[in-house]
Amino acid sequence: MNVTVTVNGVRYSRDVEPRTLLVYFLREHLGLTGTHVGCDTSTCGACTVLLNGKAVKSCTVLAVQAEGAQITTVEGLAQGDRLHPIQQAFWDEHGLQCGFCTPGMMLAAVDLLQRNPNPTEEQIRHALEGNLCRCTGYQHIVNAVQAAARAMSAAVGAPSGGE
């Protein structure tokens, strides 16, 4: 079955089995391996991408359901050499260790910052409940999201990760 989607601004058209999950479509058909698979139960959030601007678990979406959609993966966050503020903040604040949860974590944070540009610590922790991290203890992730919020509100017109 044919699927046509726009991923990180590039249009792709591929034939896939209907049972192909979006995450495997991205990883195996498009070679975008930055999106990870960490569980089978839609729990861990490692596979989080933005689907039409909203964070979704790409292990729980069929590729065929994404027909015509705009998708942003971790590979689409930076503009060339310029990191997205959330990437910069995760780097500056040591918001990652093994890095496996990080792409999904950052995209969930982008979804949050689009809705709420100035979240409290409690709101950040709550907004990340669909993303598990086993390394960091979350504290530096929270710091990173706060730092990104500051950077994004300071730099009006900074690129948003959404589209």
Binding site: G31, T33, H36, T73, E75, W91, G99, T102
Partner: peptide, 21 residues
């Protein structure tokens, strides 16, 4: 010091075992 391993991890360009083909 910021970590030197991070740029590839935050860009999604690191290679974990399942990423190999």
């Amino acid at each position: 010091v910021r970590r030197r391993e991070d740029p590839r991890l935050i860009r999604g360009t690191a290679t974990y075992t399942d990423d190999l083909t």
